[in-house]
Every structure is written in C-alpha cells, then in structure tokens.
Design a protein around this nucleic acid. Sequence first.
DNA 1: CTTGATCGTCGAAGCGTTTCAACACGCTAA
DNA 2: TTAGCGTGTTGAAACGCTTCGACGATCAAG
Lengths: 339, 339
Amino acid sequence: MATIDDVAKAAGVSVSTVSYVLSGKRPISAPTRARVERAIEKLGYRPHAGARALASARTNVIALMAPLRVGVNVPVIMQFVAGVVTRARDFDHDVLLLTQDDVSGLDRVTGGSMVDALVMMDIEADDPRVPLVAAAKQPTVLIGLPQDPEGLSCVDLDFEAAGRLAVRHLAGAGHTDVALIGSPPEVLRRHTSYAERLMRGLRSQAKSSGVAVKVEACDSSPSGAAAAVDALLATAPDTTGIIVHNEGALPHVLSRLAERGIVVGTDISVVAVCPTDVALSQRIPMTSIDLPAEDIGKVAVDMVMARLEGEQPSETRLLAPVLTERESSASGPAAAAAG
Amino acid sequence: MATIDDVAKAAGVSVSTVSYVLSGKRPISAPTRARVERAIEKLGYRPHAGARALASARTNVIALMAPLRVGVNVPVIMQFVAGVVTRARDFDHDVLLLTQDDVSGLDRVTGGSMVDALVMMDIEADDPRVPLVAAAKQPTVLIGLPQDPEGLSCVDLDFEAAGRLAVRHLAGAGHTDVALIGSPPEVLRRHTSYAERLMRGLRSQAKSSGVAVKVEACDSSPSGAAAAVDALLATAPDTTGIIVHNEGALPHVLSRLAERGIVVGTDISVVAVCPTDVALSQRIPMTSIDLPAEDIGKVAVDMVMARLEGEQPSETRLLAPVLTERESSASGPAAAAAG
DNA sequence: CTTGATCGTCGAAGCGTTTCAACACGCTAA
DNA sequence: TTAGCGTGTTGAAACGCTTCGACGATCAAG
C-alpha cells in the first residue's frame, strides 16, 4: 500500500501538504492541490485508518448496539439500523455493530477508542448500560427512554402522544369502548418504557374523551394473538375499537377476528402502531400510527454528531406521531346512532 | 486514558514487557506478570485500537456487507448478521457493518485497512463487488454463489440438494403433481443464484422420481401470493404438493389456500424452505427444510478466520439441507390409492 | 522603503502500540 | 574455568498519520 510519504514524494511536496490537501484544514494553492491529487489518484492512495485514528484521536466510526435476537421486532430493528448506517455515511462515518447482550463491548469500544460515539437501541427503564456509557468519553444517544438519562441524549417516538392520538381518532369516530392489544408479557416485564408510555397516553385520553378502555397483553404467536382476542371479546364484548401495538401479533389478531366472523373496518375498527410497510402488508391496508424507525435512527445519528462537533448539551427528542387512515377503521356505534 | 507507558511505570517494567504480557507472545515470569496485571487493573488500562492497528497491521475488526433494505428476507438477514457478529466475538473480532449498495465502502475499508477480513451476503450471479474484494489484500467469504468466485471462499445452503430433498419427500409420500411457489420476480431478475439452484434440484429429482412439476414466481404481498395460488390451481389443478420458497409470501399462500377451502396437511401438502422459527409461526407448524441462516453466518466467520490465520486455500462449502416433518404435509393420492 | 499581515508550504514532534535485536543472568556441559 | 544455551527482560525502531510552530514570499499600508 502506498503511504502519505509516497504521495508526497510523487507530488514533490511535503507530507504535511498532502495531509492538508486531504483535510482542507489549511489553504493550499490550486496547482499544488492538483499535483497532490494526481499523485493520490495515480498511486491509489488510501490513508491508513489506524494511523489516522492514532494521530487525530478520531476514528470516523460510531458504535451501534442493537438487539439481534430473533423476535417480533425484527423489521423495526432493521429499519433503525438502516437509518443509522445510511445517516452515519452522510457524516463520513462507518458503523461498528454490537449486540445488545455484549455489555463488555461498551468498555472495549469506548476504552479502546474504537469509536467516536455510540447509539444504543431498545433502552429499558433501568438499563445497566446507561451508567456505563454515561461514564465514557464518547457521546452517546439512546433510542428509547431510560428512567434516568444521566445527561445522555435520547430520541424516540412520542408514544404517550401516540396513545392519545389513537384514542382520539377512535373516539372521534364514535367508538365508546376501545381496547389495546399490546406487547408480549416479557417485553412488559423488561420495562421497555414505550409500552408504558403508550398506555399512559391511552388512559389519559380515554378519560378525557369519556371512552372505556381495556388492556390486553399479547404474545406474538398465532395462538397468543388468538387468546388475546378471545379474552378481550369475552371480558369486554362491547369493544368496537382496537389498538394493536405488536407487529408480530398483528396478522394473527386480524386472522382471529376474521375467523370469528368479525369484519375489520366495518364491525370493528383497528388502529395499528407499527411501521408503514407493516401496516400495508396486512390482509387489508391498516389505519396506523407510523413508527418511523428509519427516521429515528437518522435523528439519533444527527444528535450524536452534533454533540461530537460543538459542545451541545444533551437533549431528549420525542417525535410527533402521525396517524394515517386506511381501510381498517370506520365510524363506531355512537356516530352510527347519530347518523 | 492510561497508556501502556503508565502501566509500565506503575509496574516497574518496560513497555515491551507489558506488551508481551498482553499478547503472550513471549514468556513472562509469574511475578512480573502479576505486577503488570495489577497495574493494568488499577489504571483501567485499555490498549488504543488505532495504535495497535498501526503497529501490528491487525484491526480485529471484520466487515460485514448486508442488504439492509426492507423486504421479504428481513428475518433471515438478521439471523445471518447475528451469526456473524456472535461468532466474530469468539475470535475476538468486532463487526463493521456496510450496506449492500455502498460499493465504495469496500474500497474504503480494505484500502484504509479498517478491517482484517470481509463477509458479503446476498451474492448475485454476476456480482460487481466480487472482483473488488478479490483484488483486496484482506480475505473474503461470500454468502451465496457467484458465477465466478475468483479464488474467494463461499458458503451457502445446498439449495440444489434442498430442491431434490423436497421433491423426494413429496414423491415418497405419494404425490405425483408438485409445484414450486418461488421468489418474487425481482429476485429472479437479480439472479441471486439460490433460486436457480433450488429449481435445478427440483427439476432433476422430479424427472427421476417421475412426478410432474410446475413453477410459479410469487410476489411477497398478500395479493401476489393469492394470484400465484390461483394461477397454480388454474393451470395445474391436480397439484397436491407445494413447495414454498418465499418467507414473505408463505402466510399469504396459506391464507389463500384456506380461503379456497383447501386444508393444508390433508388436501394438499406444503413444504416450506425457510428458517425454522418462520416455519413454526405459521397458522399450523410447517413441514420445512431449514434455512440455517445463523449457522451459515457462523461458518462464514470460521472460514474467513481460517484464511486469516494459516494460508488456507479458498473453498466452497454447501450445507446439507435438513427436512423436518410437521403438520403441513401428509400422504398424497398415489399412497392413498395404494393404502 | 519599512512594517506587518496574509498566504502557502515545510519540518518535526508527537500519537500508543508491536516487535526485533540484544543483553543479563543463571545453568549445564565440556 | 569457560563456552554455550535458554529464560526473562529491555531499548529503540518502526507503523502512517496530524498538527503546531516557523519561515519565506507577496502585498498593502504607513
């Protein structure tokens, strides 16, 4: 491999000049720049990343810690990851991928100066990784909200607002009895805060809109979804509006409703909280509140880069939910009675 | 951050001694080793990755190029990735994630010595990336088979054997008219070779088993799957055995069959080619040929590491397919007539 | 003309490791 | 006694880059 020395020699300049041509940190005259660039081109020169990292204390790599276990959220996770990776490239950074359970990896990459910054997904309320990265010299942004962010930046969908929005939509359409089919019990047990935030919004809006609300946890398997539907219709038979916040269970919930002869969009309205492409690939196009996973990933990178540049203070950004009406929701009994 | 100098000073030895304690490349007496280790512990010392890479020409990072676009294969991709990342850790390596379309990333990471080796997924028959990595100084392994591997290592499921196995299973159960519901047209157009290999195996076994075989491409959407089922049953109404090689379409294929009053496992046998967890999360547990994505990812890492260590020659490894009988397949007309 | 800026370039000192050659030491074998 | 050897340790030279301070030129202002 050619080194910066070879380039300098070939161009008849000093190595520092080559370096400045590359970094643009000092003015270089047009002819000199041209000679250097020609030499770089001719030699196929690529700066050695390690040498650069050593000299500049910058690696141009960010770490992304993602849950790679197979499970319900796989498509969502991929979208986060895709958002992070593509946006990182816009800042001329690459992405080092860590798995969620590799907690010691945090020490390894921060302590060893392998990365300039970190993004961590799937934050739990009392996440053991948070104090670790809070102590690191690299800035971090969390996707999700821990109980105590310890001066770290966070970004997420505003699930509380999403809960309110979903209920408002159903109540506005005349539904008086609504229900949530939510995350699997193990997710709730892990206290991934989004489930709780969604419920909080749901309940508060239900109260002020005067609608009844029932909550049903739901395993993502076909049988789990069927059980949740059955339990719901047994205990709250007047339910005409359902909010589903569980991508994995969504198709099975719809199947079960169909099996029971219930026509979604007519007999019952369903609002899904999920990425748009998931909403569109169901048996009918679902009314949904978008979970803009890719955008969140991008925002996370924007935030972490901002902290890397200037000395921005940490901040928490909650993205406003957007509801798109499609074929799975319609007017409920109150509106029908009125109309 | 503490440096190796600090450690050396604290332990009262030279830096080279500290280095040798860390790498184990030279014998160090027990007491000295203990003093050094105590100093490392006390100072919280972590070797600087960049400095290490510069001095040793090893980064302990491998690149993984994965297709991050959203689409049918998302769960499979995640399993590959998970396999690669976890196995890489076993070799004390981290993973740098590149997206499929970032072709220039190959140059960046190889030329800049950011990684020791590469793994590339989703290889197409005439993949433009193959010559690039073939020219790189780092070893590469491909997941999938290009037309011309150019001395690179490859690993994949033996799809041709899988095709044969599926037909043999159905033919053995007495089915005389079988069909393949395959990949979306765009995948076929990209010449991702697995689709073609599966078909080759299918056809050769059909011939020797004396069964008729019909092939139907299939979009992964609900409507695409329905159309494929309808087309199949219109043009080959005697079909009693179906092989589905399309994770995304699988649930919709089953739905459509159910809508048409066809009972899977009784009227028609279905064999899926997909990861086990996908096979198990359908409306009934599917007889399937496992796509061991995680294993393939692990094997890929094993192979690339082997090439990194010794001077292994390149090789191609095709994993033998395994068929597991579950509830979606049963005896066909010939067997029924005989029994 | 001087005096200062400004501009473009250069030399050299790091950055934190690894690793090679060399050396001190205590042994064994001659 | 000494040559020779293995063991454990060291010093110093890379590794390839960034960046600081300095320096010669050029040019405007006084």
